[in-house]
């Protein structure tokens, strides 16, 4: 099984451990992730505030390259890259003149046949069914799954999971034996856009998230976005200052959690790279249990 892969800048830099853990679990379940040859920046954060054509053309070139390479499905782990890719695909497929213009700019023909998956869609489609046979350890911890803003929005484009109370990661974690708590800040803003420019806002917004997870007894926050991760992990000093108390709840990627359960070496998953140390121990051997996880109906208005 071969799927396309777009790492983007963060997976090669600040979120190396995300890349490492995605690759590690893909390898374990026998999926080859092929990077788009000669990929470029997706333009997130800067381009769509400055130049519309540029913001469309950067992702479009990547998508066209992926098509040229014969890929039909593309895994995009970074939530911002993913958002730009899906929005560009949506916009171009619904606006023919714009589509033509962008093709002109990139000097390639983007057909729009590519399926774009973020990590939780990838897990939902290719990983979840293989868990029972491959999992070695039970992830016997209380976890708070944090989705942030971009993974399941906007619903009318993605048509995946529920905007306000998504469930995909919760279901995965429950399958791994975790206690995924119901909490209030699942999709609240972490302050991603202000990660560098206005850290006070990040401290307040991410502070609320960390506080609620800790208050409800979570032992780890599970994420699937590099920005969420860096805000909740890297800005912990500011967060603790805002909350007025010290917290040691680790923030780990869903792929790392799956990797731990699959019995992959923690170093290979990059668990040692976090600012808030991950001291999760005492995982018991996995025993398959029937759990009551019904996929929620998508109830958004079309």
């Amino acid at each position: 099984m071969k799927l396309g892969f777009y790492p983007g800048c963060s997976l090669e830099g600040a979120s190396r451990e995300y890349n490492e853990s995605v690759m590690a679990i893909a390898e374990k379940i026998g999926i080859e992730l092929v990077s788009i040859p000669d990929w470029n920046c997706c333009g997130a954060t800067a381009a769509h505030n400055l130049n519309k054509e540029l913001s469309l053309s950067l992702p479009a070139r990547n998508l066209a390259l992926a098509e040229e390479a014969g890929l039909t499905e593309l895994v995009v782990p970074c939530a911002a890259c993913y958002s730009r890719f899906t929005m560009v695909q949506h916009e171009l497929m619904h606006d023919e003149p714009l589509h033509k213009r962008v093709n002109e700019i990139i000097g390639k023909e983007y057909k729009g046949n590519l399926r774009i998956l973020n990590v939780i869609q990838f897990i939902d489609e290719y990983v979840i069914d293989k868990l029972d046979e491959n999992v070695k350890f039970e992830f016997n911890k209380k976890v708070a799954c944090y989705y942030g803003c971009l993974l399941v929005r906007p619903n009318k484009v993605l048509k995946f999971d529920r905007t306000e109370d998504p469930q995909t990661m919760d279901i995965v974690m429950k399958k791994l034996g975790a206690d995924a708590i119901d909490w209030a800040y699942k999709t609240e803003c972490c302050g991603a856009g202000f990660s560098v420019s206005f850290t006070e806002a990040v401290a307040r917004l991410s502070g609320n998230i960390v506080e609620d997870a800790v208050h409800r007894g979570a032992e780890a926050i599970i994420v699937a976005c590099p920005m969420c991760h860096s805000n909740l992990d890297m800005r912990r000093k500011e967060i603790d200052k805002f909350n007025g108390k010290k917290s040691d709840i680790p923030v780990i990627y869903i792929t790392q959690a799956i990797g731990v359960a699959l019995g992959i070496d923690h170093k290979k998953l990059g668990l040692q790279r976090h600012f808030v140390p991950v001291n999760l121990k005492d995982f018991k051997p996995f025993v398959k249990k029937e759990i009551d996880v019904e996929k929620p109906q998508n109830m958004e208005v079309e």
């Binding site: 529920r162 905007t163 306000e164 109370d165 119901d182 929620p296 109830m299 958004e300």
Partner: peptide, 10 residues
């Protein structure tokens, strides 16, 4: 249950 923002009726 029509209101996601108010907890889908939960």
């Amino acid at each position: 249950d029509f209101f996601p923002e108010y907890g889908y009726g939960k």
